[in-house]
Amino acid sequence: MCLAIPGRVLEVRGNTAKVDFGYGTTRDVDISLVDVEVGQYVLVHVGYAIQVLDEEEAEETLRLWREILNSSESRPQARRGE
């Protein structure tokens, strides 16, 4: 029920930030619901930032997935080989 898109904060002016949604698509976004600085990523829903995105968490997620998915659970022979 809620389309929200990540974007990077380029500038902050009081309660408004200029956010880049990728490839140079930018829009002014209201940031009164979050504490954010220039350079951080925010999740934007209908023109308002609802969350500051955790970049390490994103990389961590991908790393975790690859680990789970390549875990020996899926390749029994590998387990015997360990």
Partner: peptide, 22 residues
């Protein structure tokens, strides 16, 4: 949004689907 937050990689999708099947 390219890069960090667009989780659409086809190979990773295939990997997850393979695990789901198992």
């Amino acid at each position: 949004m390219g890069g960090l937050f667009s989780f659409r990689d086809r190979d990773l999708a295939r990997l997850i689907v393979e695990k789901i099947r198992e």
